[in-house]
C-alpha cells in the first residue's frame, strides 16, 4: 500500500473515531425528567415559614385545635423566602417571617403583620461545662481562638449561612460579637447550619456545640439548653397574609390576637406586638 493511501485511510479512520466520540458525548445528555403529581392535601389551615417560628406555631396550632377543633398544619421550616413563594403560589394560608420583606419580595395584596418579638441567645447544652458564658468567651469560641471547653470537650461554634436574619439582627445589635463570628467563618473547623431546626438538632447532638437561637424557640420547645441572652438583639416575627383571608383563616388570626395567645407568648419568652396587629 502506498504511504499516501495509508495516510489518507488512517486520517479518515481518525475522523470517524472523533465523530463517534462526539456522538457518544451528545448521547450522554440527560433526557427531561418527569414525575408524578405529588399528593399534597391540606385539610385545614396551612401555616409555614421560618424555622424559628415553627415550634411556637406548632404549639399554638395544638392549642387552637383543642379549643376549636379546627386543624392548623405547621409543616417543617421552609424559611422566610420559602414562605413568601408558597404564599404567592397559594400553597399556604399564612406565612411566618422572621424579618421584614425586602423590596423585591413585596407583592400586591401581601400584608406583613408584626406578631411578636424575642431576644436572641447563645445556647449550649445544660450538661456542658461552659456556663456561665460571658461575651468574651463566646467571641473567642466563635472566632476559633478558643478551641476547647475547660473540661477538654471540643468547642463547636455553629455558624449560619450569610443571609440568615438572626445574624443580620446581631450585626446591628452586637457588632463586636458579629465581627468575631465573621472571623470564625474562615476557620477550618467551622460548621454551618442552614436553618434554625438544624441549629437545634446540632446543639442537641454535638457535645460542646454552641449556637445563636431565639430564646422563645428554645423555651417553647423546652429544650435542655443553657441560654446566654443577647439583650440588644431582638428578632421580630411577622405573619404574612395574601388577599382576603377565608373565614377559617380570619378566625385563626383573630385568635392569635387574643389575650390567651399573649399569655402563652409571654410564658415562652416572646413579647406580643399587639399594637401593630
Amino acid at each position: 500500500m502506498k504511504p499516501q493511501r495509508a495516510l489518507f485511510l488512517t486520517a479518515n479512520a481518525m475522523l470517524v473515531a472523533v465523530a463517534m466520540l462526539c456522538g457518544h458525548c451528545a448521547d450522554d445528555r440527560p433526557s427531561q425528567l418527569r414525575c408524578a403529581e405529588p399528593a399534597m392535601k391540606a385539610q385545614g389551615i396551612v401555616v409555614a415559614g421560618s424555622g424559628a417560628a415553627v415550634p411556637l406555631f406548632a404549639d399554638l396550632a395544638m392549642r387552637y385545635f383543642e379549643k376549636t377543633g379546627q386543624r392548623v398544619f405547621v409543616p417543617a421550616s421552609i424559611g422566610t423566602g420559602g414562605a413568601i413563594r408558597a404564599l404567592s403560589d397559594g400553597a399556604i394560608h399564612i406565612g411566618l417571617a422572621t424579618r421584614p420583606l425586602k423590596e423585591n419580595e413585596r407583592q400586591p395584596g401581601v400584608r406583613e403583620i408584626p406578631f411578636a418579638r424575642t431576644v436572641l441567645a447563645v445556647a449550649v447544652r445544660r450538661d456542658g461545662s461552659a456556663r456561665p458564658l460571658d461575651m468574651q468567651t463566646i467571641g473567642r469560641i466563635f472566632s476559633g481562638e478558643m478551641r476547647r471547653w475547660p473540661d477538654g470537650t471540643p468547642a463547636v461554634p455553629l455558624q449560619r449561612e450569610p443571609g440568615d436574619s438572626g445574624f443580620a439582627v446581631l450585626a446591628g445589635a452586637e457588632p463586636g460579637l458579629f465581627a468575631r463570628i465573621r472571623e470564625g467563618r474562615e476557620h477550618p473547623g467551622r460548621r454551618f447550619c442552614y436553618s434554625d431546626d438544624e441549629v437545634m438538632d446540632a446543639l442537641g447532638q454535638i457535645p460542646g456545640a454552641l449556637g445563636i437561637v431565639d430564646e422563645g424557640m428554645v423555651r417553647v420547645m423546652d429544650a435542655p439548653f443553657h441560654l446566654t441572652r443577647l439583650p440588644g438583639a431582638r428578632r421580630t416575627l411577622f405573619l404574612l397574609v395574601k388577599g382576603t383571608p377565608t373565614s377559617e383563616v380570619r378566625g385563626f388570626l383573630n385568635w392569635l390576637g387574643s389575650a390567651e395567645v399573649d399569655r402563652r407568648l409571654q410564658d415562652v419568652g416572646y413579647e406580643p406586638m399587639k399594637g401593630n396587629r
Binding site: M40, A42, P75, A76, G79, G82, R85, A86, A91, I92
Partner: peptide
C-alpha cells in the same frame, strides 16, 4: 409537602 419552598436552603 412544602419541600419545594425550602430547596434554596
Amino acid at each position: 409537602p412544602l419541600w419545594k419552598y425550602r430547596t434554596d436552603k
